[in-house]
Computed example of a mutant assay.
Amino acid sequence: MKFLHLPFAALLGLALTACNSGPTAEPPVASQTPATQAPAAAKVTSKRLLFFGNSLTAGYGVEPEQAFPALIGDKIDSLKLGYEVINAGLSGETTAGGRSRVGWILRQPVDVFVLELGGNDGLRGLPLTATRANLQGIIDTVRRRSPKAQIVLAGMQIPPNLGQAYARDFKAVYQEIATKNKLVLIPFLLEGVGGDRKLNQPDGIHPTPTGHRIVARTVWAVLQPVLK
């Protein structure tokens, strides 16, 4: 197993086009050398698992190896499941930003795509119609670029600061999207962690290393059957 964490600076540069709320055209896919001309050593033998999300995936405030995608990678390595794990988390990312950069991220096909976005939309009170459309746009792009990929959607919840109705409808978006697209759903990424001061950093949003270990267990319970 090989774990890759895309540098923050590189992701930030890619996300500069994400300032607009609408979708942008995908960059053209670079032409590939025919397989007959590629050296044998260049052949990819492992599958690719990509985590695509915001600061929760990126591991804001903790060391890269303490973030839940790296912990999942350690588990995969110990079980010799043969996946290359890629962390494409970007702090501050919204669903609109993710929709803008997902085409670039998927220049190479993936086998499993974990989608963790929407939390920043909810905290900013963005219209749920836009969040729903952006998540659908990301899913459509994944299926266009990697038709055989299994997509896992990480559900998110927000506190009722913006009203009970908004918080309820926000939570429901993930179940709706998962049902519509027949996705594997993690009901709530921060189950057992969200709202617990001991498991979160002083901002009350981002998990501590201990919190990330709990998140990793939550994710692994859903992801393990997908990887077998």
Rank of each mutant, 00 (worst) to 15 (best):
E84R: 14
L71I: 11
L56K: 03
I205H: 03
N87I: 06
E26F: 05
R145F: 10
P202H: 08
E116W: 09
P69S: 01
S91I: 11
F113H: 02
G119F: 04
K228T: 11
E84N: 15
D196L: 06
G82H: 12
L162M: 08
G204P: 00
G125T: 05
G22L: 11
E176Y: 02
I139F: 06
A15I: 08
P127Q: 08
T131N: 06
R101P: 03
R132W: 11
L189S: 02
G211K: 04
Q175T: 15
A67I: 00
G155H: 03
D196F: 10
T179M: 07
Q175F: 06
L115Y: 06
M1Y: 14
R124W: 10
P23K: 11
Q224I: 06
S100Q: 15
P34N: 05
T129W: 15
L126F: 12
I177F: 02
D77Y: 15
E63T: 13
D74Y: 08
Q175E: 11
I138N: 03
M1H: 12
G53F: 01
F113L: 03
F8S: 06
A40S: 15
G155L: 03
R217V: 09
V193E: 00
P202I: 02
N181S: 07
E176R: 05
K43P: 00
P69L: 02
L227W: 07
E176L: 00
A216N: 05
F8G: 03
D77E: 12
V219Q: 05
R168N: 14
L4M: 09
F113W: 01
G103F: 02
P64N: 05
T210V: 15
Q201N: 07
L126E: 13
L199M: 05
A130Q: 12
A30F: 10
A42Y: 11
A172P: 00
G73Y: 08
G92Y: 10
A67Y: 03
T210D: 15
V193W: 00
E63V: 04
Q164L: 13
V110L: 07
F52H: 01
Q175D: 13
L106T: 03
E26C: 05
D74V: 09
W220R: 04
G61D: 01
N161I: 12
E191L: 10
S46P: 02
H206L: 01
P34T: 03
I86M: 13
A70W: 02
Q66M: 02
A178H: 01
